[in-house]
Design a protein around this nucleic acid. Structure first.
Lengths: 225, 225
DNA sequence: CCATTAATCAACGGAATTGTTGAATATACT
DNA sequence: AGTATATTCAACAATTCCGTTGATTAATGG
C-alpha cells in the first residue's frame, strides 16, 4: 500500500513540528523564560539579549508548534505557554541533557568554580532546613516574575536593587536566594554580593517550574515590601 | 559580566542538542523503531524504507545526541537506545503532537475511515476484556521484534505470514492484533485480512513501549510456534 | 489626523542540513 | 591473500534556516 507511506510521513512530520521548535538554543531560552510567566516580546528580547525582530521570529516558530500562544492587549502582544505541557517539554529536554551530556556538568562546574560558588540547595534540602531553622527566602528575579508565581513566604528583591537594599536583610540567619532555575545566574550574583557584605547566604538550585513539577504549591500576587 | 552570556549560550546549546536530534521526521521514525528493540543499520533502513546511507547518517545524528548507542558485532553494528529515557522522549513528543495538533487526529481519522477501521482498544480496555472473556492476542510485528519484548501470552504471527497461517487461529473467539503503537499500520492490515476471512478481530492501539510506560510487565524470548 | 510605540514582515547574504552517489573502510569467510 | 558484506565517509547540488536591516502594520494618545 503506497498510502501507508504517506500516512507515516504525515504523522512523523507532525511529531517533528515539536522537535523543530526546540532545536535552537535561543528558542529554548525563550521557552525557559516563558516558564516564569507570560511576557511581551520586548521583555523577552531584553531578558534574552536578542533583538526584538529576532525574538519575534523565534516566537513565531514556537507558536507554529503551538508551544506558546499570543494574547493581544493594546499595542502589546503577550506571549504565554499554551499549557504546562510546554514547560514540561523544556524540563524533559533539560533533564536529558543533564543525564546524557558530560559537557553540561563540566560547563556548570567550571563556571561555578570560577565564582567559588559550588554549593547549592535543592528543594528537598531547603524543606528540611526550613523545618529546623529560621531562613529568609529571597526571590531575586525581576518583580513581575515574582508576581506571576513564587515560593510561599519568599521576599521579592530583584538582584539589580540588591546593593541598595541590603539594610532590609537580616544578619542573624541564613538567606536562601533563588531565581529561574539551576542554570540561571541571578541567584549566583545575589549570593556573591550578600557574602561580600557579611551575610550568610546560599543559592537554591530549583525554580518555580521545578517546584510545580514536584507538586509544591506556588504563591502568586503582587510584591509585598 | 560578559561570561554570563557565554555560560547561558553553552547551556542552551547543550539542551538544543537533544532538540536537533528529533527535529527530523526520519529520525523520529528511527527512534520509534528502536523503541521496539536493538537493530542493525540494514534492518532499520528496510523498515523505514530509507537508503542504508541515509539511515546511517541519521543514526549518527541520534548518536551525537546520545539518544542511541552502537555495539559492534562482526561486520554488523547494532544500534540501541541509550536507555528508557530516549524512548520516553519520543513518547513525550508524540504526546504533545497529539495534544496540540488537530492535524494529528485529522490525518489518522481520514486514514482509518478509508479502511473502515476506526475502532481500537487501548490497554485498559484490553485488560478489562481479558478478565471477562477468552481472547487471542496476536503480535503481528516481525518475529525479531516479538523476541525483544511482547505482551505476556501473545502469539507471534508476522503480518507477512498471516495469509498462509490463518488455519492456526481460532474462529470461536475474538482476536486482538497489535504492532508497534498507535500509528503503526501492521495491525490494521492484520485485522483487515482477518475480518475478510471470517474472523472476529480488533486492533490494539498501544505498543510495547506504551505498556512499559504504564508499568505493565513485558515478556521477552524466542517465538513459540 | 499625525506622532509614537510595539511588533511583524520582507529581503538579503551567509551558514548549516539534506539526500544521493560512489568510493573507502573494516570485518569475516574461504 | 582475495572476495563478500555491512557500514561509513566524502563530495555534490538543492534546500532550508539564521540574524540583520529597514520598511510596514496596528493600536494608542494628543
Amino acid at each position: 500500500m503506497s498510502s501507508d507511506r504517506a500516512f507515516k510521513d504525515a504523522i512523523y512530520e507532525q511529531i517533528a513540528r515539536v522537535g523543530r521548535a526546540v532545536d535552537h538554543p535561543r528558542r529554548l531560552e525563550l521557552l525557559d523564560l516563558l516558564c516564569q510567566g507570560p511576557m511581551t516580546v520586548e521583555q523577552l528580547a531584553r531578558k534574552s539579549a536578542m533583538s526584538v525582530s529576532s525574538t519575534s521570529q523565534h516566537l513565531q516558530h514556537l507558536r507554529e508548534a503551538r508551544l506558546v500562544r499570543v494574547e493581544h492587549r493594546g499595542t502589546f502582544r503577550i506571549y504565554d505557554l499554551t499549557d504546562d505541557a510546554s514547560c514540561e517539554l523544556f524540563r524533559t529536554l533539560r533533564g536529558l541533557a543533564q543525564r546524557y551530556y558530560a559537557e553540561m556538568s563540566a560547563i556548570t562546574e567550571a563556571f561555578l568554580r570560577d565564582r567559588e560558588a559550588l554549593e547549592a540547595l535543592d528543594t528537598a534540602a531547603l524543606q528540611q532546613r526550613l523545618a529546623q531553622e529560621s531562613l529568609t527566602l529571597l526571590d531575586v528575579r525581576p518583580s513581575e516574575e515574582y508576581a506571576m508565581g513564587h515560593w510561599p513566604g519568599a521576599v521579592s528583591l530583584p538582584v539589580e536593587e540588591l546593593s541598595g537594599r541590603l539594610a532590609e536583610l537580616p544578619k542573624d540567619h541564613t538567606i536562601v536566594a533563588y531565581c529561574r532555575g539551576p542554570y540561571c545566574v541571578l541567584s549566583l550574583h545575589a549570593v556573591d554580593m550578600l557574602r561580600k557584605n557579611g551575610f550568610r547566604a546560599i543559592r537554591l538550585a530549583d525554580g518555580v517550574s521545578d517546584w510545580k513539577a514536584q507538586g509544591i504549591p506556588v504563591a502568586a500576587g503582587e510584591v509585598v515590601s
